[in-house]
Write a protein that binds this DNA or RNA. Structure first.
Lengths: 197, 197
DNA sequence: TCCATCATGTAAACAGTTACATGATTGC
DNA sequence: GCAATCATGTAACTGTTTACATGATGGA
């Protein structure tokens, strides 16, 4: 009689990533997970304690991870390991590569800003783009270094990931140059309409 | 004596986009904004009413938009227009192109899944990638059509934006092919560690 | 007249950030 | 012994999604 819709719920990106980390590194404390994220060059998750600890508890109550053992020192910490259900859920999440949410283009602050460039005066548009291009070149340099360091350390998957990020930076740079060319080719007046009908 | 930290607060991506839309289309009802988002091919915001209406009210209490006039029909709707403060805030937001949050690589579900590929058996990895490549090709086709339709309609900025999205799809496709090649070059055993120390 | 859809909302749940609290350990 | 940091958390707030409610309008 009891509805047995066991798990049904999907994992968020962060839950997936945490399961993944526990899987590849073995049992982890929340703090170790936290550091793993803050050390990585990507800034897409702050991995603040206010996020990690509740997330870990959530995964535990869903039966995807469990306490493997306590930490030895005076602190009341625990090492969490995957359960078989967690392993399955992780494999499904990773295989979700072909789902629409994974396939569709992720939002990009560059695109969403350029989309409204007509509200700026032409001179200001160009300044902004030029500054962004400089910043991107800088970022590209650091991304390349990171890729190289991962390659040197023989981390195949990490190298692939960093290469992916690097390709994205390169493409965004190329695109911003397109934008600059288009701006120069056709200076397009700015609109000021505040209260036009 | 009263602290006059007038606005100080930054705009979220969505707030920026809403201000931008009001700026380029003139006074809008929340519903029109909603449709604008749901009609666009990008799926990055559901633009549900539960998000739009509070957001509009938020912008209004911050003095960035104001009611231009009521709608004529029986419904109790309002058209919102930018205030001068809103115009300024929008211009600042758009110029924020070069800020670190805009420059850093946006998170990508493809990358975050491939990062944990070692938990899958080699065969399953390849299947997943192949399916994702197919789905991406499909997506690319539709993105190209959209770019063409925007170009045909003479929307310069919209064309640029769609080109940007298209370049991203192309790059993601190229990268997934890299991944496939690497997988084939070096089939790398899967790890099953559930409870290894 | 009745049904789909247009249009405007509200309520609850949820995930994540920021800021704070607190105790243990390590290095000087 | 004292400061920095390591490590584990909690509380309040924010923004978004999901689900629901409700009334108006237009076409069959």
């Amino acid at each position: 009689m009891i509805p047995e819709n066991a798990n049904s719920d999907r994992l968020t990106e962060l839950e997936g990533a945490v399961l993944g980390m526990i899987a590849v590194r073995g049992p982890c404390t929340p703090y170790v997970l936290r550091r793993e994220f803050t050390d990585s060059p990507s800034r897409f998750w702050s991995a603040s304690s206010g996020a990690v600890y509740p997330l870990v508890r959530r995964l535990a109550t869903r039966g995807l991870i469990r306490v493997a053992r306590k930490t030895r020192d005076g602190r009341e910490g625990s090492l969490y390991a995957l359960t078989p259900a967690g392993s399955t859920a992780l494999a499904e999440w990773v295989s979700g590569l072909d789902q629409p949410e994974s396939i569709s283009v992720p939002p990009d602050p560059l695109r969403s800003r350029v989309a409204f460039f007509e509200v700026l005066e032409p001179a200001r548009r160009e300044e902004a783009v030029v500054r962004a291009i400089d910043a991107l070149k800088d970022h590209l340099e650091r991304t390349r270094e990171y890729t190289e360091s991962e390659r040197a350390r023989g981390n195949r998957f990490e190298t692939l990931i960093s290469q992916g990020a690097q390709r994205m930076v390169e493409t965004r740079l190329v695109w911003l140059n397109d934008v600059l060319l288009e701006l120069r080719a056709c200076p397009h007046p700015s609109m000021s309409r505040e209260d036009t009908e």
